[in-house]
Design a protein around this nucleic acid. Structure first.
Lengths: 234, 234
DNA sequence: CTATAATAATAACAAATGTTATTATTATAG
DNA sequence: CTATAATAATAACATTTGTTATTATTATAG
């Protein structure tokens, strides 16, 4: 089996890792740096694509509105992640929206410059294609999680996923900090009901909560809850 | 808003529609016809891609196994649909499995021949890319449906989707025929619990059931249940 | 056609989740 | 710092869904 967490991680922070120094420089030169306020949208559903983004500092949520208008979050981006390229390859509109959760710094590559880059570094296209395929599998795994697991298991799983993602992107240990509403919109429940699950986890000693920050205290108990046998190294 | 049903339909049966006669002939010549028994797999998770498929006769389910091993179905393919191309563009493995639900006839284009075709018809690549982007949005919509709607609403929605898909692909009116287990694995519940919802729908006069075939009798009541106001033409 | 296995329907009870309301805490503007 | 608004916690009750068991129906092999 592939690495456990990669099944739920777009891994778009690794997209440029296989480039050589010269190629990386080409990409660097194509980027322009932007400072963006919390709550701003990088792009939105049905919007015309303008280019691709890399988050340097801050976090962002990717979501789509269900037909009752409710926000369904399906991914949390962290520093290093590259996003917004799907729509460029197909010359189509964005299928979803992306909103900054904190004041952020973002690198931007405009559409035309990006296409020039694809010409200058031919294998770049395949690198992106491969990741789109991987992301497709991630979405299918999210579908399975939502359809097959109850609320506590979905919460447990998402706490693991977020903690893994955050700890890989930030140097120091960091709590999971999302509003209860965002966390509820990620695991597919209401904030009230999410609160009940969080309380159960607190009472069981699985997590510790400080303000809105959530810290995982007993990973082993989470694995037990999820029926995952060998938790070594995860 | 885009066409209601297209939000949940891969529309991969329309992929070749914009080709001219000559191009269509090229594609036709690349295809080899296969007869495949019910229960066979066209491809499976982690398998190495061999080519792409077009279903001529029969239906197929696309699924992925959750980590408890349970089968999560996320799409039902019908005649005309093209599939299996994601993995080819990224030179990666299949992310999911596809199983025939009936004895079927399938056209197959081997990998090398497919790549030659992409050279002969350059805009074919963008056509496929664009659809992959669209499919990405469909998966996000499925995620929202599973996360935000209760069982009756998920069933109602899937009945609408399946009826729409089936009625577009088959000449005569056709019932929805899936095993209760497959239908349960599609809407994210157990067969027993699905049975309860079906009974409620039967009692309310929304559907009629003959053997395992399900017929929608009152589309208006389904739209009411889903809080969709203007049901004209859908 | 018949026997057998597979699938489907139903019911009853347990558990999980939705919902509404109220109170407490935290963030933010001034 | 303080007032106010936003967010979070909690509880109680209603509703939905999960689960186990039993019976009925349908498909399939022989």
């Amino acid at each position: 089996m592939k690495d456990f967490y990669s099944q739920f991680d777009f891994q778009s922070n690794l997209l440029l890792d296989t480039l050589n120094e010269e190629e990386k420089k080409l990409v660097q030169n194509a980027m322009e740096s932007l400072t963006i306020k919390k709550g701003s949208l990088l792009f939105y559903e049905e919007g015309v694509p303008t280019g691709i983004f890399q988050i340097k500092k801050g976090k962002a949520k990717k979501f789509k509105r269900g037909f009752s208008g409710a926000e369904q979050i399906f991914y949390i981006y962290t520093p290093g992640d590259i996003l917004g390229y799907h729509a460029l390859f197909g010359e189509e509109r964005y299928q979803d929206s992306c909103e900054l959760l904190e004041d952020a710094e973002v690198n931007f590559i405009a559409k035309d410059i990006f296409f020039q880059l694809l010409k200058d570094i031919p294998r770049l296209q395949q690198i992106f294609m491969k990741n789109i395929g991987h992301e497709f599998g991630v979405l299918a795994n999210i579908i399975a999680l939502l359809a097959q697991k109850n609320q506590n298991a979905r919460l447990a799983m998402n706490l693991l996923i977020l903690q893994d993602r955050f700890s890989k992107r930030y140097k120091e240990p960091i709590g999971i900090d999302l509003t209860r509403e965002d966390l509820a919109n990620l695991i597919g429940t209401s904030p009230e009901s999410l609160g009940r699950s969080l309380k159960q986890f607190k009472d069981a000693g699985i997590i510790k909560v400080d303000k809105r920050l959530i810290y995982i205290k007993r990973k082993d108990l989470i694995f037990e809850l999820l029926n995952i046998p060998d938790s070594e190294g995860l």
